[in-house]
Simulated scan of single mutants.
Amino acid sequence: MIDPQRSTPENLVARVRAVLPSLTPSARIIAQMILDDPGTVAGSTITELSATSAVSEATIVRTARVLGFSGYAQLRLALAAAAAAAAATRNGPDRLVPGDLAPDDPLCDVITKVSRAEAQAIEDTAAQLSPELLGEVVDAITAARRVDVYGVAASGLVAADMAQKLLRIGLPAHAFTDAHLALTSAVLLRSGDVAVGVSRTGETPDVLEPMRRAHRAGATTVAITNNPRSALAELCTHVLISAGRETAFRPGALASRISQLLLVDYVFVGVAQRTSESSNEALRATRDAVNEFVAESRPRSRRSP
């Protein structure tokens, strides 16, 4: 459950956005009301909110629990704080939910809206990430014999980024974007290894099956996903939640990818800190190797006759 003293308007909004796509239609009505007008929800009793939304009181309680609260009363306290913070900073729903891109938007609006969406994704991801959870993931990867990272399409790019970062500091890490190769690797994992699954929806079969096999083999499993209620999240030992509200003009390759890369950077820096001596040595060695290769590959100027 959420500690009301540690709940902030930012991480509450981030949690609501994170679970919104996975909620039932009735629960989604309540979640959207929270995003659109937290003050009204905070000022309503559960009976009043049920009448306004045409959603049952039981569904309202379940929605509060999905968001991490013990019940509706605790949620109202957090929403009151969110509404007060929004009023103090003059932030309304348009600030909380950036405007959608339209086909006829001028490029100046494209720049503004895309920048705002990606900045918001970063802020939401940071707001809802627990340092304790990040520490557990960092500890597991630091101690791992090997790290497998699975992802396809845009998430495959994130998987590759994570693997190459860990490899640069001397950790045996590999990214797999092909399901057959991922399965081949996953079944060879064992206790002490770490498998990381990257999937915005948390329902990608090409990521889920290797993660299931890795879990059966005894590996520690880590999810990077937008959906905390997904099959991937339920399967994994640790779940890192990325943020990013997508539309037809902002597919998974935009805001969600940025927030996934942010989580990878958090993990990478944490591991590098835990292994600072060996990491610095590995970084120097890999940097020197690349620099030497580049220098030797440059065309030599021809000598004058």
Rank of each mutant, 00 (worst) to 15 (best):
M1P: 05
S7M: 13
T8E: 04
A14I: 05
A14R: 12
R15G: 02
R15L: 10
R15C: 04
V19C: 11
V19F: 11
L20G: 01
T24K: 12
P25G: 01
R28T: 08
I29F: 05
I30Q: 06
Q32K: 13
M33E: 05
L35M: 11
P38V: 08
V41W: 07
V41C: 06
I46Y: 01
L49F: 13
S50T: 00
V55W: 01
T59E: 14
T59Q: 04
I60V: 09
V61E: 13
R62N: 12
R62V: 02
V66I: 15
L67S: 04
L67A: 00
F69K: 07
G71R: 03
R90A: 12
N91R: 14
G92V: 02
G92C: 05
P93T: 11
L96S: 13
D100V: 14
D100F: 15
L101E: 08
P103F: 09
D105S: 07
D105E: 12
P106I: 04
L107T: 15
L107C: 14
D109E: 15
D109V: 02
K113F: 04
V114P: 10
V114L: 09
S115F: 06
S115Y: 00
R116F: 05
A117E: 06
A119N: 10
A121Q: 03
T125A: 13
A127R: 01
L129H: 09
P131L: 00
P131W: 03
L133K: 06
L134D: 09
L134M: 06
I141C: 05
D148N: 10
D148S: 13
D148F: 12
V149S: 07
V152G: 02
V152L: 10
A153H: 09
A154C: 12
G156W: 01
L157P: 04
V158L: 10
D161M: 03
K165N: 11
L166D: 04
I169K: 13
G170W: 07
P172C: 08
A175G: 06
A175N: 01
F176S: 07
T177H: 13
T177Q: 13
A179L: 01
H180M: 09
H180Y: 13
T184M: 08
S185C: 11
L188V: 05
L189K: 06
L189G: 12
S191N: 10
S191M: 07
D193C: 03
V194Q: 03
G197I: 00
V198K: 05
R200G: 02
E203Y: 04
T204D: 10
D206S: 14
M211C: 08
M211G: 07
A214S: 14
R216I: 07
V222F: 12
T225V: 07
N226F: 02
P228Q: 07
A231G: 07
L232V: 08
A233K: 10
A233C: 06
L235A: 01
C236Q: 03
V239W: 01
G244E: 04
G244T: 04
F249T: 13
G252S: 15
A255M: 08
Q260E: 13
L263W: 08
V269P: 00
V271G: 06
A272C: 03
Q273M: 11
Q273C: 09
Q273Y: 09
R274L: 05
S276K: 07
E277P: 00
S279C: 09
E281W: 12
L283I: 05
L283D: 12
R287A: 15
A289F: 09
A289I: 10
E292A: 15
F293C: 11
A295F: 08
A295V: 12
S301Y: 14
S301G: 15
S301V: 15
R303S: 15
S304P: 09
S304L: 15
